[in-house]
Computed example of a mutant assay.
Amino acid sequence: MDDNNRYDNIKDVSWQNVESDRAKIKFINSKRRSNIIKLGKIFCFVLVASISGGISGAYVSSKREAAKIYTPNNNQVVVESRDNADKAGSENAAQNSVSEVAESVSPAVVGISNKAQDYFGLQDLESGSGIIIDSNGYIVTNYHVIQGADKVMVKLSSGKILNASVAGVDERSDLALIKVDAKNLPVVRLGDSSKVKVGDTAIAIGNSLGGEFPGSVTKGIISALNRKIEYNGVIYKVIQTDAAMNPGNSGGPLCNIQGDVIGINSLKLGTDSNIEGIGFAITINEAKDIIKSLMSGEKVSRPDLGISGESVVSQDNKIQGVYIQQVEKNSGASAAGIKPTDILLELDGKKVKDISDVELILDEHKVGDKIKSKIWRDGNIIYSEITLSQIDKK
């Protein structure tokens, strides 16, 4: 073999070895790449599984947050929705608020016993409730609770019994102020009844059925505002509520959910056994000025026309108003030239059908206000301006 052939053989062998090595290298690289791909797939699977698990866990967690699941004795699964849970929470919060109102107001609510003297001695005539409005012993209640009393007894929330004196009364508003000899008594906080709305929570506190159930608390809503009712010939503008009231509640407070007194429980329309959930309270805004006058020893003054009369209607129904029977001397009506036999058709731009309509209009004014009137006299219409005079009512 010559040198050239030898060189060719060596070259061929070397090339084959290189090709073989390359084949081996290529084989080894492919295997590693396959392993890397497998590892990548596994990593992606794990990542996807982790994300899916997280989403599932969040979903389950949110579902558990949205519903409380419990198993009763019959092994049935019952789900309580969040709406129901929130509603229950709101009801509990409201209940807690009522409890707080009761705790703060009840110490200032008293029981009142009206005693009258007869042949057999002092007898219980009436019982009711009262509200301590001044720490020095002033208590407001209904006039009818102490009406005709020879002796008034007050029972504090502590159980202590004290004699009371009548400081002043206003029969027309059914309010009275009594006084006990005591100091540092708990008092209520008077609210603003003009801010009360229909549907608001109403809480009544008082001595239901007299001394048998002292400090009874009932809850309802405000059913109506500025309700006009007639009682013993007097027209009242009152708050209507469905908070349960019973004999003995008269004179007690009607409170809002903040614990402010918004009314004084006064009347109960419940003589018919079929009527339930209708109670009335004098608005605290109306009572404030009256209480202030009674505490200062003054008579309660109200504007007045100075007339008395009755409702009339003509046969053809064209004339309807108040037939004036009497005109008081030195009254606003007298100064305006109004005479007996005149028929009052309108007052302050409003039609009047009876004397109660006149009283409601006057309640919106003060002494000294000037209001217009429309009078029918002998077939003629007369317009006049009346300056409201003062009338004192005990």
Rank of each mutant, 00 (worst) to 15 (best):
A336R: 10
S165W: 01
A102W: 03
T218A: 04
R227V: 07
V188D: 03
A93G: 00
G332Q: 04
I307V: 13
I25C: 15
K288E: 06
Q326V: 09
K350Q: 12
P340Y: 05
E328I: 13
D134P: 00
S30I: 11
G137T: 00
G137L: 00
G332L: 04
Q325N: 13
D118N: 06
Y143F: 12
I36F: 12
D272W: 02
R32V: 07
I51W: 11
A23V: 08
D192E: 13
V234T: 15
I282D: 00
Q320L: 15
S384C: 05
G233N: 01
Y383N: 15
G53L: 15
N114G: 06
K329L: 09
M295P: 11
V77F: 09
V169N: 00
V180W: 00
G332N: 07
G321C: 10
P72R: 10
S97P: 04
I381F: 12
K183L: 04
R82T: 09
G211P: 06
N246F: 05
S250M: 04
G309R: 05
S223Y: 08
V367S: 08
I205Y: 11
N256Q: 07
A164T: 06
Q16M: 07
G199R: 12
A164F: 00
Y323L: 15
F213L: 11
Q123G: 12
T201Y: 14
S129E: 06
S273Q: 09
K26V: 09
G57L: 02
K179A: 00
R302D: 02
